[in-house]
C-alpha cells in the first residue's frame, strides 16, 4: 500500500514542464508570441504566428492561447501540451481587422473584435469554427465577459461606448456612454465594476456592469490604453501610452497613488495570479516591466522581441 506521500509525489511528477506562471506576449514587429516564465523571469520560447499580432487571450489553465493578427486578418491558436510544449494548431480568417480578442471564463468561446466591420466574431475555442457574429459599435477593441459568462462587454473605440451583449440571445442589452475612445477593459468583481481606459479623454470610466451605467471618471495620464485591477479591488493600474507611465489608483477611494515611469509606450497590463506584480508590455522599448504591487516600484525589466503589445488576458485567468 502506498503512502499519501507517494501519491503526492506521483501527482507532482505528472505536472507539465514550466508549471509556473506563463505570460504570452504578442511581439508585433517579429510576428511572434514570447512565452515568458514570470517566476524565473526568462523568455522560454518565441512562437511564430500570423502577421503583426496584437491581441491575445489565454484559456483557463493555459492549455490554449489565441492571438489576433491584424495584418493577416486571422486568429492563430496555440496549444500547450501536457509536456509543456507549444504548437500552433490553427489559423483562421476572422473579419477584416481583428484586434481585440477575449475568451469566456469556461474556455469555450473566443470573441474577436473586427475593427472595420463593427462586429464581434464568436469562435468555438476547440474547433476555431465561427458560431455567430454579434453587431456592436464602431471599431470594437477591448472585451471581457461577466464572471458567469452571461454577458459580453465590448469597448467601441469610435462610438465612445461600451456594448453589453447577452450571450444566450445575442441581444444588445445596453449601450453605455463612456469617455472618449474607450479601449482596454477589466472586469472587477468588487462592486462589481467594469474599468474602461479612454484613450482620448485621458481618463478611466468606472462602469456599473449590473445597472449598465457609468458611475464616475478618474483622471490618469496621456493616452490610457490598458487597465488592470488587483483581485481584492484595492488598486487599479493604467498604462499611459503617451506619458510612458503607469497610473496607480486607490480603487476604493479613487485617489491617485502614484505615477510610475515605465518603458516607452506601455500597452497591455495584467496583475500576476499571485497578485504580487503588475506586468506591463512596453511597445516602443521592446520590454516587459514588472511593478511590485505593494511597494509600487518597477522591480524588473525583461528584454523582448520587437513591439510587444499583449493586448488582452495574456496570462491564464
Amino acid at each position: 500500500m502506498k503512502s499519501a506521500w507517494a501519491y503526492l509525489t506521483l501527482a507532482l511528477a505528472s505536472v507539465p514542464a514550466h508549471a509556473g506562471t506563463l505570460a504570452y506576449v504578442t511581439e508585433q514587429g517579429d510576428d511572434s508570441v514570447a512565452v515568458v516564465d514570470v517566476d524565473s523571469w526568462k523568455v522560454l520560447e518565441q512562437i511564430k504566428v500570423g502577421r503583426k499580432p496584437a491581441g491575445v487571450a489565454v484559456a483557463p489553465g493555459a492549455t490554449r492561447i489565441f492571438v489576433s493578427n491584424p495584418e493577416s486578418a486571422t486568429v492563430s491558436a496555440i496549444a500547450r501540451g501536457a509536456d509543456g510544449q507549444h504548437k500552433v494548431v490553427g489559423e483562421v480568417k476572422a473579419g477584416q481587422g481583428p484586434l481585440g480578442i477575449a475568451i469566456d471564463r469556461a474556455g469555450r468561446q473566443v470573441f474577436v473584435a473586427d475593427w472595420y466591420n463593427d462586429d464581434v466574431h464568436v469562435l468555438d475555442a476547440a474547433t476555431l469554427g465561427e458560431t455567430r457574429v454579434l453587431k456592436v459599435g464602431r471599431s470594437p477593441s477591448g472585451m471581457t465577459t461577466s464572471p458567469d459568462d452571461k454577458l459580453l462587454f465590448v469597448a467601441n473605440r469610435e462610438s465612445d461606448t461600451v456594448s453589453v451583449i447577452e450571450l444566450a440571445t445575442a441581444k444588445t442589452l445596453a449601450t453605455i456612454a463612456v469617455g472618449k475612445a474607450p479601449f482596454g477593459v477589466a472586469y472587477d468583481e468588487n462592486g462589481p465594476r467594469l474599468w474602461v481606459a479612454n484613450v482620448q479623454s485621458g481618463d478611466v470610466s468606472v462602469v456599473d456592469p449590473v445597472a449598465f451605467r457609468e458611475m464616475r471618471r478618474v483622471k490618469v495620464g496621456a493616452f490610457p490604453y490598458g487597465v488592470a485591477v488587483t483581485r481584492d479591488g484595492a488598486r487599479a493600474f493604467v498604462t499611459n501610452q503617451h506619458a510612458d507611465s503607469v497610473s496607480v489608483i486607490d480603487a476604493r477611494t479613487y485617489a491617485p497613488l502614484a505615477t510610475l515611469n515605465t518603458g516607452a509606450y506601455p500597452e497591455g497590463i495584467l496583475i500576476s495570479p499571485d497578485q504580487t506584480r503588475a506586468l506591463v508590455a512596453c511597445w516602443m522599448d521592446d520590454e516587459l516591466d514588472a511593478i511590485d504591487v505593494s511597494s509600487l516600484k518597477i522591480v524588473k525589466r525583461l528584454k523582448l522581441g520587437s513591439g510587444p503589445r499583449a493586448f488582452g488576458q495574456f496570462i491564464a485567468p
Binding site: Q28, R51, A54, P70, E71, A73, W283
Partner: peptide, 8 residues
Amino acid sequence: AHGPTRQK
C-alpha cells in the same frame, strides 16, 4: 491591403 498597424 490590410488593417492599420502602428509603425515604429
